[in-house]
Design a protein around this nucleic acid. Structure first.
Length: 227
DNA sequence: CGTCGGATAATCT
DNA sequence: GATTATCCGACGA
């Protein structure tokens, strides 16, 4: 489990999906080419958060795993929000509507209905609230998880093993070995065949797998000059 | 359901 | 200047 406590409240996530990165010997790792300013935390002692910013808009969080000098870390990819779903949902709604026309979200005030755990298939009432899907997607993916927890660059280097730290990793219920699956890591270019993505079978909060897609950006010279 | 392209800025060469 | 450990909305079936 990973949890973060702020003035807005506590949000706790039970992890269902992670990815391992092996540092300088792993072509998929940010540490592959040696220490830099960005990956410095990974080369430090274990038990700290390595937070990076990517695609110009997203944060992702790793937990550093090996002792100083070895840049091994685990990317926290997805999980189930088990506490503070209302806070997490408000953050997600806020952030995703940043660019759209609708600035105010009607769901912000009535988000107390998070009781559903039984087999009720109710939900998709009309267009207003589709609570089930929203709840499932709260932390489904590394950037969404950071959004739900409000993790940003300020938390890079945070001590996640200190119980007094606002951001902390905690041991939860043990997952039986046989329900853990593994496969290639998501969206990475180098060492894509290495099966170091791990997830809990059958969990709806596990993010969909996506292979790396090389993205050739629009031509620098042509884009800005309409004619 | 599925695939496709745009957004957007820190980081490294 | 190119690339990116991503997400979202649009569009087609």
């Amino acid at each position: 489990m990973i949890e973060y406590e702020t003035a807005e409240g506590l949000v706790a996530v039970r992890l269902t999906e992670v990815e391992a990165y092996a540092g300088t010997v792993d072509a998929a790792s940010h540490a592959y080419r040696g220490p830099t300013r960005r990956n410095a935390v990974m080369f430090g002692p274990p038990g700290y958060a390595y937070v990076y910013f990517t695609y110009g808009m997203h944060f992702c969080v790793n937990l550093v795993c090996a002792s100083s000098g070895t840049a091994a870390a685990v990317l926290v990819r997805a999980g189930q929000v088990i506490e503070g779903a209302d806070v997490a949902g408000a953050r997600r709604a806020r952030d995703s509507t940043a660019g759209t026309s609708t600035a105010r979200t009607s769901t912000a005030r009535t988000s107390t209905a998070r009781d559903s755990t039984a087999g009720s298939s109710a939900a998709r009432t009309s267009a207003a609230r589709n609570g089930t899907a929203v709840e499932r997607d709260l932390a489904r993916g590394p950037a969404r998880l950071c959004q739900a927890l409000a993790i940003d660059a300020a938390l890079n280097g945070a001590d996640v093993c200190d119980p007094a730290s606002p951001l902390r990793a905690r041991t939860g219920e043990r997952v039986p070995r046989r329900v853990i699956r593994s496969g290639p890591r998501t969206g990475v270019r180098g060492a894509a065949e290495v099966p170091w993505r791990f997830w809990v079978a059958g969990e709806p909060t596990v993010s969909p797998y996506r292979a790396h897609v090389p993205r050739a950006r629009a031509r620098p010279g042509t884009a800005s000059t309409p004619r």
